[in-house]
Simulated scan of single mutants.
Amino acid sequence: MANTMIYRRLGRTALQVSALCLGTMNFGPRTSEAESFAILDDAFEAGINFIDTANQYGGHLGVGATETLLGGWLAKNPARRDRIVLATKVHEPMSDDINDRGLSARHIQMACDASLKRLRVDHIDLYQMHHIDRAAPPEEIWQAMDRLIAQGKITYVGTSNFPGWAIARANERAAAAHRLGLACEQSLYNLIERRAELEVIPACQAYGMGVIAWSPMAGGLLAGPSADADGRRSADGAVLAADARANQLARFATLCETLGQSPSAVALAWLLHMPGVTSAIIGPRRREQLTSVLHAPMLKLDAETLAQIDAIFPPVGPAPEAYAW
């Protein structure tokens, strides 16, 4: 498999990551170990050097199962580790223990050590806060992150699902301490869900952060009719969502047909054309789902096509500024 991947700087850092990031949430609970390893092999061969996971992933197999599976793949060929930008997350409950969750300094330290053990590595390249913890002072969070950096256990710090104001606050606290601050934000962003354009993406751009878009297919809605075979759209809520947007989705499918591209590839390409976006997370369950979109970063959408897409899925910005004048 030829490597034609495009790489981009992660925000203002000098780190280069692939425009497609391999998400691993399906690995273990929905995709067997053998198939997961095959997808990881294919992604690595195709030049994807950015792999994202989280300590809570595992579904019915239990929290940590996906990290453990990924650690097994890394252990098969340790030489691959140095060529991969490995990202994981902290925040979600890992047990019934009241302190085994959130962003306390204690939990951040313990969770990082546990992730390192499951992943079978000595450091994590990008350690992301999975959600905001309103009870944790930013000074406490940075104390923990600075300690992990000093210990060589993590390299960069990122956020996920953070609002714009929290991104600004975290970066200002870091700047006051003469620290790099946040490298990136991993946000829900796709053609259907564009609220990140209001304040999250502008905040990231203002602070020189990369944006990593998760759920680029909107849970399968943007993947076209073939997504039904995936099982992602079998839930009643997803079917209702598809019915509610039937006209939009049909117009989008028609546009993609005129482009000679699948809806999945166009949805990904659109994201990678958006200002501030560094990488889009793909979470394939099967090998063919990966290989069918590997060309998306090279797909160029002209201004007319982007305008047509906006006509189908209108932007939600700019953000209102209330009484500001």
Rank of each mutant, 00 (worst) to 15 (best):
L240M: 12
A322T: 11
L188I: 03
D228M: 10
F37A: 10
A311D: 06
V63S: 11
Y7N: 00
G260Y: 03
S279Q: 00
R194H: 02
R173Q: 10
I312S: 04
L180M: 11
L69G: 03
G64E: 08
P275G: 06
L299Q: 00
L119F: 08
Y127V: 03
V293A: 06
V63A: 15
H123K: 10
T155G: 02
A136F: 09
A241E: 13
L268F: 04
P78M: 11
R8M: 06
Q143T: 15
M129E: 05
R173Y: 14
E139A: 15
S262G: 13
R134Y: 14
I108N: 05
I39S: 05
I212V: 13
N247M: 10
G260K: 06
C112A: 10
S160H: 04
P320Q: 10
G181T: 11
D310M: 08
G283Q: 04
M5N: 02
N161E: 13
E45F: 00
T24K: 04
A229E: 14
V239Y: 06
S115Y: 07
A168H: 12
G181S: 12
T31V: 11
I6S: 06
F27L: 11
A175S: 14
A170L: 15
V239Q: 15
D100G: 10
G28D: 07
A75T: 08
G231Y: 10
A14T: 12
M5G: 00
I167V: 13
G58H: 08
L126G: 07
S36G: 12
I309M: 00
T13C: 10
M5S: 05
V85K: 01
L290T: 04
A34M: 08
C184F: 03
A105T: 08
D243M: 11
I282Q: 01
S262Y: 06
A174F: 07
T53I: 08
G102Q: 10
M110P: 03
S160L: 05
Y156P: 03
P320L: 12
D146L: 14
P163N: 15
K117S: 15
G208S: 05
V17F: 02
A54Q: 07
I212Q: 02
R194E: 01
E257P: 02
A43I: 03
I84Y: 01
M217S: 05
I84L: 14
D243T: 11
M25Y: 05
T258D: 13
G72V: 09
P138V: 15
L126M: 08
S95C: 09
V90I: 13
D230E: 09
Q143D: 15
G72M: 07
A105G: 15
D243R: 12
A235R: 12
D236C: 02
V211R: 01
R286N: 12
G152C: 07
L119T: 06
G64N: 02
A136S: 15
L294H: 01
A280D: 04
A280I: 03
A79D: 14
K89G: 03
D122P: 02
M298F: 00
K117W: 07
A175G: 08
Q248F: 05
M5F: 00
E33P: 07
A303N: 09
T254Q: 12
T305P: 02
E139P: 08
I201F: 04
S226W: 05
A218Y: 04
M129T: 06
D230I: 05
A218P: 12
Q308M: 09
P320V: 12
A303L: 01
A246D: 12
F313A: 01
L306H: 01
R81G: 03
T88I: 06
N247T: 13
